[in-house]
Amino acid sequence: MTTTSQGLTAPYALARFRIGDEVRPGLVAGDRIRPLGEAELGPGGLNGFLAAPDWGRLAALATSVPGSVEGWMPLAEVTLTAPVEPRQVLQTGANYRQHVIELVAAGLTQNSDRTPDEAREFAARMMDDRKANGEPYFFIGLPACVVGDDVPLVLPAYSEVHDWELELAVVIGREAFRVSRDEARDHIAGYTIVNDITTRDLVFRKDMKEIGTDWYRSKNAPGFLPAGPFLVPAPFIDGADLNVRLELNGEVMQDASTSDLLFDIPALVSGASQTMPLLPGDILLTGSPAGNGQHWKRFLRDGDVMTGTIQGLGTQVVRCVAEQATG
């Protein structure tokens, strides 16, 4: 098993890359990539393949000595973009146990007579009860916000509190509708990385607090879901214990494990599928651990570089630029 310059350790993975003005699906093996067409993926393209993936077919291609067979190119010489083409984006909130405990405990310490230790113990009991008896919290994002890290993240000028949230994303394979937890893994094609960008001062409505959260305005500006660079097949990834790490300009901001998820991946896929069918190629974000900008009181600025790595899935590098004034 080789490692690419972008941190991929699986024997092969899927990607999408630019050839001129065209974006093509590709197969990555080691430090090489080759385009995939109808002969390899079938007439349904990438999402059609994910609906009924023939990983053996791609494995045979990946072991055909990349570099010595026509069609393979150096990975370093192509521009990768988002490896997925979702029709739906499902997002999970408040799903890292320790992160939520810290948030709840901070609020309790400020608004009650509890000591910090008492507040954490109370919050931990709340989270354990939620895990045992509660349900995942979902909201939806716009597929149009999904981009690759080849696209700079433009920070909208209407706010100065744009935040990062690195997340493991499940890529749906076979359509999932009202599936059980035991059936859920049969509907997972693979995994990728997504950074769920959030404008913090737009999360809660100020004009009518009773309405609550406004996920549309706070999370759906152009490019607010940088994804990839790879789609790693599910057989190569154990999503139950992966390191999730984000660096901002080289400084570690998030560093946690998916073992801290309140609701695990089968529970999330099952829960999300109860309302609407999850379609091949859709992505389901699993939540983000502690260490976002709100915690550090430091938000994204022009020139910032975010380096997000999830164990086994590679590394994405997102460059931030300020929105240019118009008029």
Rank of each mutant, 00 (worst) to 15 (best):
Met1Val: 07
Ala10Pro: 13
Ile19Met: 11
Gly20Leu: 03
Gly26Arg: 06
Gly30Pro: 10
Arg32His: 13
Leu36Asn: 00
Ala39Asn: 05
Gly48Leu: 07
Arg57Ala: 14
Leu61Ser: 06
Ala62Glu: 05
Glu70Gly: 02
Trp72Ile: 06
Trp72His: 05
Leu75Val: 01
Thr79Ser: 13
Val84Gly: 03
Val84Ser: 03
Glu85Ile: 00
Pro86Cys: 02
Val89Ala: 01
Thr92Arg: 01
Gly93Trp: 02
Tyr96Gln: 02
Gln98Asp: 15
His99Phe: 09
Val100Tyr: 06
Val100Pro: 03
Leu108His: 02
Thr109Leu: 11
Thr115Cys: 09
Arg125Asn: 14
Arg130Phe: 03
Lys131Met: 12
Glu135Met: 12
Pro152Cys: 11
Val154Thr: 15
Ser159Gln: 02
Glu160Cys: 01
Glu160Asn: 08
Trp164Met: 08
Trp164Cys: 10
Glu165Asn: 09
Glu165Met: 04
Leu166Phe: 09
Val170Thr: 01
Glu175Pro: 15
Arg181Gly: 02
Asp186Gln: 13
Tyr191Met: 07
Tyr191Gln: 12
Asn195Asp: 15
Thr199Arg: 14
Thr199Val: 15
Leu202Cys: 02
Leu202Phe: 15
Asp207Cys: 04
Glu210His: 06
Glu210Asn: 07
Ser218His: 06
Leu231Arg: 07
Leu231Gly: 11
Phe236Met: 07
Gly239His: 04
Ala240Pro: 01
Leu246Ile: 02
Gly250Trp: 08
Val252Gln: 14
Leu261Gly: 12
Ile265Cys: 05
Gln274Thr: 15
Pro277Tyr: 03
Gly281Ser: 11
Asp282Arg: 05
Ile283Ser: 08
Leu284Ser: 11
Gly293Tyr: 13
Arg301Phe: 01
Gly303Arg: 04
Asp304Met: 04
Asp304Glu: 08
Thr307Ile: 07
Gly308Gln: 09
Thr309Cys: 11
Thr309Gly: 01
Gln316His: 10
